[in-house]
């Protein structure tokens, strides 16, 4: 069984995101390790991109901080390697297609396999274009994670049918960022997805509080938190580690109360 599937094997999974290189590559590596050690079940490592069109202001700013600190695709591979040496938690990259294309698909996915990255999320790669990376990623055993959105409707079955790793269910319209409420009928979408795939379903976009995590966690296999974590790094910089650990533990506790 893939490392990604294992993340969903013991209760509701907590998927934690941070932008690699924010505030600096060195501190960021420590924070990624802290996510794993304080209980995150799967870690999303954002490779910074100059123009992240699916991100709200919080993660946009993190991308800029990371790039300003000199973070490159190469740096992020080194960081992922360092994290992998400390933990067996599944690691998934989140980035945009251009940095991957520019690195070269073959070289990029080969490197993912070498350093122990299990999957990749590419918000600007819809189902219709996934041949772009699919065969190369498969060859190196890297899952290309499918995204399903509130507007997907009749596309859900087609996308879910070819999903690998897990399905990233986008909770809301718009871009990433903290939301006070999520109005999409998550339960209904999860059951539609489940009719077409055995892959676990994790819900992201807008989740920030333990209460939201507990609520969404009841409806899916896992919850994804990004902006709320990045905000903590934005506010605490190099002193983020204890705050991040406490936050991860609070979400984990909320998820453990389910069932």
């Amino acid at each position: 069984m893939s490392r990604i599937k294992q993340a969903f094997d013991h209760g509701k999974a907590f998927v934690a995101f941070l932008t690699a290189g924010d505030p600096t590559p060195q501190v960021s590596t420590e924070l990624l390790i802290a996510l794993a050690e304080s209980g995150a079940d799967l870690i999303e490592i954002g490779i910074p991109f100059s123009d992240p069109i699916a991100e709200g202001p919080v993660i946009q700013a993190a991308n800029m901080r990371a790039l300003s600190a000199g973070t490159t695709t190469e740096t992020v591979f080194e960081m992922a390697k360092a994290v992998r040496q400390k933990t067996e938690v599944p690691l998934v990259f989140l980035t945009y297609l251009n940095p991957v294309f520019h690195y070269g698909y073959e070289a990029f996915f080969k490197k993912c396999a070498e350093v122990g990255v299990d999957g990749i999320i590419l918000p600007d790669l819809p189902f219709e274009e996934k041949e772009e990376v699919d065969s190369v990623a498969k060859q190196y055993g890297v899952d290309v994670i499918s995204l399903i959105a509130p507007t997907s409707e009749q596309r859900i079955r087609m996308i879910a049918n070819e999903a690998s790793g897990f399905v990233y269910l986008v909770s809301s319209m718009g871009v990433t960022g903290v939301r006070s409420e999520i109005t999409t009928d998550i339960g209904k979408m999860v059951s539609e997805i489940k009719q077409a795939t055995d892959c676990p379903v994790a819900v992201g976009f807008g989740i920030s509080t333990p209460e939201q995590a507990a609520h969404i966690g009841k409806l899916a296999d896992g919850v994804i938190v990004g902006s709320a974590l990045v905000k903590l790094v934005e506010a605490n910089g190099e002193a983020s580690k204890p705050v991040i650990e406490a936050y991860v533990q609070s979400i984990k506790r909320a998820l453990e109360t389910i069932e």
Binding site: L147, A149, T151
Partner: peptide, 19 residues
Amino acid sequence: SAGRYGVHGGQYIPETLMN
């Protein structure tokens, strides 16, 4: 993939916009 001009073009956008 739709809308190609040689290797160029395509539809590289978030799933939210596909419909």
